[in-house]
Amino acid sequence: MDNNDTLSAPQLAAKPRPAGLKLFMKKLVSQRMLVLMSVPFVIWLFIFKYVPVWGWTIAFQDYQPSLAFKEQQWVGFDHFRSLFSEDRFLISLRNTLAMSGINLVLGFVTAVSFALLLNEVRKVAFKRVVQTVSYLPHFISWVVAAGIIQTMLAPDGVVNELLKGFGMIEKGQEYLFLGKAEWFWGIFGASSVWKDVGWNTIVYLAAISSIDPAQYEAAEMDGAGRLRRMWYITLPGIKPVIIVLLIMNIGYLLESGFEPQYLLGNGMNAAYSENIDIFVLKYGLQQFNFPLATAAGMFKTVVSFILLFSANHIAKRLGQDRLF
């Protein structure tokens, strides 16, 4: 990743030695235009991205909105303790992990398979059409997607019609799909695949295009068929990309998304659809329990931070050492 070299660089321009201070100030004055062009946005960054982190203090307080910061009662880790003894939070944690797990595995398997199949298409025009169609759902909002999914899954929707057509259910037995809590993960997984599988193939297709064509020719000479070439050349060729992306995605394990769960969720499926983000929203902004909600959000950010950093580190090491 490009940004890591800037991160690991030890020398910080902001810490000039006393002797260099004068030089630093002189440079700063002569570069005042660059300063004017960037510093206002650093101030913006500070207000909108760093000040909220200060808001984490709420998680350690018996927060009263009417009181000033100094007057707040500090309670240590009490809110975190009650968070982890709260069934609803533990369920939302389970749902978060389950849904991002489903997304991870299903997303990878479908995107890689789809990329492999697309790569075997020789008619360029056909390939273009398939690509255009399959990227489309990525660009509609989750609101629109949820509208479509609800229409499809309604009792009088197409899926029930299909089941009736195959004789799997009788008229009058139509399923209320989004009302079946234990089906929610499946519906979520299928919806996510529908929305993003095409888009996710882009990076694999790019990786496939950098495989040396001579490898295919050699395999062909040896009499390897299409499936074999796919299995023994294309797949190993994109293996490094798959592994790096997999590791990077593990960094986002607590980010199971918010919109699909919120938009497709309802009272009937809450036990399976409610993830940490929805827990934060419900406790925080609907029940006004700011400390507990902030604690939950902070837990998510801190764990994600650790996961992301480890993932980045591992991915970088693998990339450099070419272990795979």
């Binding site: 321009a13 902001a14 700063l28 650093v42 934060v280």
Partner: peptide, 28 residues
């Protein structure tokens, strides 16, 4: 040659990893 280059870059990159979350953002 910009003397604040590293500082500005790092200030931005840190926000990739850390965000205040819903409630603190709402309060802000």
């Amino acid at each position: 040659e910009y003397v604040l280059r590293k500082l500005v870059t790092i200030a931005f990159i840190i926000t990739m990893y850390i965000n205040g979350g819903l409630i603190p953002n709402y309060l802000l």
